[in-house]
Nucleic acid binder design. Structure first.
Lengths: 224, 224
DNA sequence: CCTAATTTTTGAACATGTTCAAAAATAGAT
DNA sequence: ATCTATTTTTGAACATGTTCAAAAATTAGG
């Protein structure tokens, strides 16, 4: 690890510590640099902005998530249980740094920002996240309508986004309500999915699928 | 109108003009003050922050929305048509200032911010927005399950929030895709609502209603 | 080793949102 | 009208994210 890599890692670690202790807003770039023993400008050599430190964190979060899921997804094959666990785990891992999530979310709200979940710059991370849900569906026992099955990963990704959104605003102790929400919505999703296989839903199935198709989250590239 | 009110209004108008022309980020408080012919500090006497100018805009947007709906809601009684029109109109009115919506959204992502849609400070506006949906449901022909009917306004408000969220990220020309999304999801909502009245949904109805109840958006006050 | 090119670091300077004590304008009371 | 209290305005100063030219450290070639 060269001098530069060392400094970069040091800045990241220092920033994470300070963000956790003081909060994202309250932590100044000067403080990070000072604590790391470098000049303020150094931070900007390694990280494009204060917010890009967050993206670095999110990449790490994703890796941790993926890592922690390997065993589980190999053993548990029930769709509902898989979905519940994947989403709960994401929140559990993110919980200690909630205000970083909020900060990211803030910047991410600007579609032109490179940190937007739909931007070109974050495409790589987005696709990696998607893979988790592809894997989730892939290894699941359970009946899926053929077309639904191919759309499902993207929509489950969206579902996770929605849960994260709820969590960001959730002020209950230990985000208790978010976990309750997951526990209550996962069965609904399963039920909805099962319903789409039932005969009674036939008349509407086509319409639903075409809506789902035309608005499926564009995770790969732009098209207006 | 006293001197202060005049200055306040002048600052608001000037800010809106500059935001529309240059964008929210690109417009500096100094520029607003200069164009309005006052000192920078004056802006902060009348508006707590740059973002609070946005809230002022959102209040105005709401009033415009309400105003423009009066006639329509009196004449059109079909639920789906009412919902479609209310939500489309909101977007149409907001469209010219999309990047202000984005800026608001950004700040709003912090639940501790007074601009958060769930904060105490914006409770008044939130309740007023809710009233539109109460009115919408109230005057609708159509069958509603009794318990659903009382929950519906809040969830339609949430639906509108979701549409706004989509719109914020929508980069299609004139936000075309957002309007398509509205046109396609309104029938789905109607269908879902109708479905809940059907016999086949009986076994799940209780569960759905209790989930809807326990997670109904807390638009009035906090409770963990 | 020595030198030149490249990478990394520095720290002062800049831009902009915001604060604040002092000044100016206004309103109220006598 | 004069004095006092209150409201409104001013503009310099501050905090912090960020930039950038110069300096220092490192690497590569001979």
């Amino acid at each position: 690890m060269g001098r530069a890599d060392f400094t970069k890692q040091l800045l990241f670690d220092t920033a994470m510590k300070l963000f956790a202790k003081e909060g994202f807003e309250q932590t100044t770039m000067r403080a990070i640099a000072a604590k790391a023993g470098v000049a303020p400008g150094a931070s900007y050599y390694h990280y494009k902005s204060k917010e890009s430190l967050i993206q670095a964190y999110y990449e790490k979060l994703h890796v941790d998530h993926e890592q922690a899921l390997i065993d589980f997804l190999q053993n548990e094959k029930d769709f509902a249980k898989r979905l519940r666990h994947v989403v709960r785990l994401k929140i559990e891992l993110a919980e200690p740094h909630k205000d970083m999530a909020r900060a990211l979310y803030r910047v991410a709200a600007n579609p032109e920002s490179p940190l937007s979940p739909f931007s070109k710059e974050s495409e790589e991370l987005r696709l990696k996240s998607l893979q988790i849900f592809e894997q989730l569906v892939e290894g699941s026992h359970g009946r899926f309508h053929k077309e639904i099955r191919s759309l499902l990963p993207k929509y489950l990704w969206m579902y996770q986004m929605a849960i994260i959104l709820f969590w960001i605003y959730d002020t209950s102790k230990n985000s208790k309500r978010t976990f309750e929400l997951i526990d209550q919505t996962v069965p609904l999703i399963t039920w909805l999915n099962d319903s789409l296989n039932s005969a009674w839903s036939a008349p509407f199935r086509g319409k639903i699928i075409s809506t789902l198709k035309s608005f499926e989250p564009a995770l790969k590239e732009e098209a207006n």
